[in-house]
Design a protein around this nucleic acid. Structure first.
Lengths: 199, 199, 199, 199
DNA sequence: GATGAATGAGTGTTCATTCAT
DNA sequence: CATGAATGAACACTCATTCAT
């Protein structure tokens, strides 16, 4: 009696195992057999559910991106109000959520950033994500700033978020969320204030 | 006697070929034979001069880091004066120098960032470099800011520089130096001003 | 499910192919691909079943030693009685059994003898085998000779067996079993007689 | 000013280095560069004096055989008289001379024995040597024994010498010359005695 | 649905050999 | 005479992929 409806279960099992394995030994040293083994399955199963290794890698990156989107979405939905400042803080908080700044997530993220440089499909996903952060920031800044200022603020804010995140990833120590948030909030406030003054 | 004094020439040739190849097809797809071929040499030569592939990769990363150090050093030496603001701008300018923001350099940089996560020796080099940027920034900020403010400013400034650089690397378009410099300078001025006020 | 229970079959196939190949072209020129090819399999299979080339070589030597043990065991079980002389003759006969004095067996034996000098694991196997021959001989001699005489007789007998075998291996001609047996039996009788006299 | 007459010096230097290296790491792992390095010379020199690696190996085996011939010759010249027994003892002693039973000599000997199985030129040298031992023994035995007995005695004696030597080589402990000599002398005396009786 | 045996192309690495100096 | 830089063929080993069961 063949089990039915295994697909979503197996796919999630394998994607989770892929993240774990990439975190542990790096994408370059990750083999199909290792991922399958970490999932408690055999190597042949990967082609069954993802076509080939690349299919698994792509699916894994999509999952990572979805996790970030979900984290940001959650903070924004739970924000106390809809003022630009509150919403921008929610975006910052979402990017520094536990799901994003644990060691595994950060390492896998950076791995995909690097991989995307030579794999068009990954690059597409990665750019869409970059753009979403910028768009969200820009939309909120535009509510209080003139368009050019809003764009610059969004660019600076996005760079600040990614930069704090990147340096945290590579520092070798635990990511200091509080510190990162202070610096990011301060930049945010300066942008909001400067914009008003110049407006 | 055989040709003598070839070592530095061959090493540079091969390192340059490694950068070119990593830029073109990515570290994961870079083979020893390809690098040697790009340098117009045979594959065996790599072990002759670097021991093994890893030796070449390490030497290449050291070269990349040296290039950045040199670029920053040049801007600082050529700065019109030694005031903190001028020196900090020189550091920013050095990080956005042509040698750093051309496509090849950026891609190779990001590649090594990712690789350093699973290779202790690369991680060591990468962290030393991260720390140098922070130290240099912190030293200058300290000349005008109290120590705690200087540290926060240095952290924010470093994140801003890396973030702008990173998003530029991945954007797919040419890096907009002028725009990046405006955003970084603005952040710099805010930090200097804020510090004075609060001091 | 894939074909199951192939392991013992494949292992034996490959070990047999290893013996054949070592006999034909020598251990130094034996490649994994050649052994696999001789077994009608692909090169990757060796690592699948033996880990690496060394694993195959070790397994092959173990097989060779087992064959000798089996040959000696067979002659001793089939011996007409349990007197020392009969048992000692059975040991001699086992060492000169067809399975041991065909060209392939002799060449592979000598190959492993030489290889064992620089490979601790092979040396261990080889010494255990050497010691077994001596022990078996010594045990039988002790039944009729005083301990010191028995030890000397066992040493001489072991040397005689190995020496006849060795010179036969290298002579380039077919091993003359009858001749070897006469010489060995004569030495055996002298030892038994001399011992009795001196006892 | 080119040095003249370097050939014999360099050849000996390299042959000695080859013996040392083969003893230390085995023939299979011996490279031209290692031998040359052990001789304090550069790798290119080997082809200069021996044509190629095989030339060096062959020359080294010839040297080893010459050493044995010299050792036996010395003992025979220094023998107190020319009786068969004394001469046969001299042959035994020559084979167990220090120059033959030190670790390096034994390991290299066995190495060449094994190698000779698949290299016709080495096999030729090796067989000539085997035959010399047999001939020398047979000649002496014939002075007191009928031809057939002499031949059998020579075969047994040669096997005994080689067997003692072989087991000593592989035992892992220091070669016990006194013990080997006692066993070999005893066999010798039995052959001489038995022959006389039956004659 | 799932397995893992089997394949074979591709890679890093070693090393005998050549040869310009 | 001697060097050692350079070559490139050969090898062991890895691993994504296929497929009979």
């Amino acid at each position: 009696m063949p089990k039915v409806g295994m697909q979503p279960i197996r796919r999630e099992q394998l994607i989770r195992a892929a993240v774990t394995t990439i975190d542990r030994i790096g994408l370059a040293d990750t083999t199909v057999a290792q991922v399958a083994g970490a999932a408690g399955l055999s190597s042949g199963i990967v082609s069954h559910y993802f076509g080939d290794k690349n299919g698994l890698i792509h699916a894994t990156m999509r999952q990572i991106l979805r996790d970030l989107r979900d984290a940001v979405g959650k903070y924004r939905r739970e924000a106390p109000d809809d003022t630009p400042r509150t919403q921008l803080q929610a975006i910052i908080d979402g990017n520094f959520d536990d799901s994003q700044i644990n060691s595994a997530a950060m390492r896998v993220w950076l791995t995909f950033w690097a991989a995307s440089m030579h794999q068009p499909e990954l690059a597409r996903l990665q750019r869409a994500n970059d753009h979403r952060l910028y768009s969200n920031l820009c939309f909120q800044f535009r509510r209080v700033l003139p368009v050019e200022r809003a764009r610059a603020a969004a660019r600076g804010m996005a760079a600040m978020i990614d930069g704090l995140w990147l340096r945290g990833s590579l520092s070798g120590a635990k990511f200091d969320v509080a510190q990162a948030r202070v610096i990011a909030y301060e930049y945010l406030d300066q942008q909001l204030k400067a914009g008003k003054t110049s407006a």
